[in-house]
């Protein structure tokens, strides 16, 4: 098989960036043998500078340096900022993996726009830019002829957008609903299983690294709301943004409510209801497919032909999410 060289730029080298780099180091030969691609990372951008190497960066080395908070010690460290890299270094695909800011969509929004304007395809795990300016970004991608792919923005490793694209083509999708935030699911599961308060469950989630130091983004339903916007626009053909979603988080859910639900053969889960643009805690029958435990995510897509399809899997984690990033990358390469 003839090998095609594809240059990648990674913007944001946190949990997902490092997870992606580790999987690429591990799967590089597999991808070359099975898909005929030689994926080469030529730049990795962090807040205060970038590692740039046109020949390709040694990924094992860069992951180790980053884990030791010592990326600046890399021999190819430069003070180039992410926008400088986008403007100066030509790549085939830009991976936008910076953290989400749901109010402004920044800095990811600018990274995506500038990359698309330069005709570079973008693969992102960053929800905020899409939750804020979904249709504008789609238009920009269309006009530039570059692809914008975002499977990793919703449900981590769960294939949802690509499932619709590649396996449910003939179906009309009537509704989509599910558990889209692993932190909330962990907390609610813990409260139900061990009859502990939300504070205790949350503290344990933080100790295990499942919840952020400031978990409000997850607990207040904002993260789920952003994902609902992306699914509404991409699977149900809506044209909505975050402000259109009614969001109620789980912070006021009591152990007594969870106990009552259990007594009546139900559990309480934070559900993103895409058709209704609603995020709220809901009663889920104990034997329902959406009753999944721990940090798992689960989404049911209801269609006219295939009927209900439920996808369950890890909704977070660097390596797990990279599965979705690779799915988009391979798709882009195949379509070229």
């Amino acid at each position: 098989m003839k090998t095609k060289e594809i240059n990648l730029v990674i913007i944001g080298f946190g949990v997902i960036g490092k997870g992606f780099a580790e999987v690429l180091a591990d799967k590089h030969d597999f991808l070359r043998a099975n898909y005929g691609v030689d994926l080469k990372v030529t730049a990795i951008c962090e807040r205060d500078g970038s590692v740039v190497c046109k020949k390709g960066i040694d990924l094992d080395n860069v992951v180790e340096l980053s884990l030791n908070n010592n990326l600046k010690a890399h021999e190819n460290w430069t003070t180039l900022k992410s926008l400088d890299v986008i403007n100066k270094i030509r790549s085939d695909i830009v991976l936008e993996l910076t953290p989400s800011n749901i109010e402004t969509g920044q800095p990811g929004l600018t990274h995506i726009k500038e990359s698309l304007k330069r005709g570079m395809c973008v693969v992102t795990s960053n929800k905020a830019p899409l939750a804020v300016e979904f249709s504008q970004l789609q238009k920009l991608a269309k006009n530039s002829g570059a692809e914008l792919r975002y499977e990793a923005t919703v449900g981590g490793a769960l294939p949802l957008i690509n499932l619709r694209k590649h396996a449910l083509q003939v179906n009309n999708i009537n509704s989509v609903q599910g558990i889209l935030n692993g932190t909330c699911n962990y907390v609610l599961t813990k409260m139900a299983d061990e009859y502990v308060s939300m504070d205790v469950a949350l503290k344990e989630a933080q100790n295990l690294g499942i919840a952020e130091a400031d978990p409000s983004y997850d607990i207040n339903g904002i993260d789920t709301g952003a994902k609902v916007v992306i699914l509404a626009n991409s699977l149900l053909g809506m044209d909505v943004s975050f402000k259109d979603v009614a969001v109620t988080g789980i912070s006021d859910v009591t152990t007594e409510a969870i106990e009552l639900a259990r007594k009546h053969n139900h559990v309480i889960k934070l559900i993103g209801d895409v058709e209704r643009l609603d995020v709220s805690p809901r009663l889920v029958p104990i034997n329902h497919p959406l009753n999944v435990s721990g940090t798992l995510n689960a989404v049911t897509i209801s269609t006219d032909i295939a009927r209900d399809i439920t996808v369950i899997g890890p909704g977070a984690g660097g390596k797990e999410t990279s599965s979705s990033l690779f799915s988009d990358i391979i798709d882009i390469i195949r379509s070229k």
Binding site: D252, T254, E256, A257, L260, K263
Partner: peptide, 15 residues
Amino acid sequence: IDVLMPSPEEKSSVM
């Protein structure tokens, strides 16, 4: 109707 009241001051949960 099923009620759980942890204490009179706290919020109750009613199914």
